[in-house]
């Protein structure tokens, strides 16, 4: 497997080990639990809405570096976005991981979350990367 260093890079490691998004949210409007029973990744995502805007996102939980950092980076990317914008970004992220889109222009929407691009080459880890995004998708 090439690209290992690209996956376990500074950004992803920092987000997985020492994330500032990992905490309980005061006055959260919605809370959703997501887990991958086969590997034990568990997260709880909380969001605070301001009308149609996702004002804040935070999470708690435990799991591998990919699942945890993916959750944390997602929080950064989607914070302040409208529900419609978030839905499009989530779909783009899922498409990227499932290799259904490789269009560079399209992927720019993902901002930092593009760091997970190479997970598409790691079938065993796809679920880890998608957990947070699929969980949030259900909440909005």
């Amino acid at each position: 497997m090439e690209n290992l260093d690209e996956i376990y890079n500074e950004l992803i490691m920092e987000h997985s080990m020492n994330s500032y998004n990992k905490h309980k949210l005061e006055n959260a409007d919605k809370c959703e639990h997501g887990h991958n029973p086969s590997c034990g990744d568990e997260i709880e995502i909380e969001i605070k809405m301001n009308n149609n805007i996702i004002e804040d996102i935070a999470f708690t939980g435990s799991g591998c570096a990919i699942s945890q950092s993916s959750t944390s980076i997602m929080a950064d990317v989607l914070r302040g976005k409208t529900v419609e914008e978030a839905k499009i970004i989530i779909k783009t992220f899922i498409d990227m991981i499932k290799r259904e889109t490789t269009d560079e222009k399209e992927l720019e929407k993902l901002e930092e979350a593009i760091a997970f691009k190479n997970v598409a080459n790691m079938p065993a880890r796809v679920k880890c990367a998608l957990l947070a995004w699929k969980t949030l998708d259900k909440m909005i």
Binding site: M1, I7, Y8, C39, C64, A65, A124, R125
Partner: peptide, 12 residues
């Protein structure tokens, strides 16, 4: 280090 990350690196 989470065991799944470790297994990925060992696999590589």
């Amino acid at each position: 280090v989470h065991p799944h990350d470790l297994a990925t690196i060992l696999d590589s």
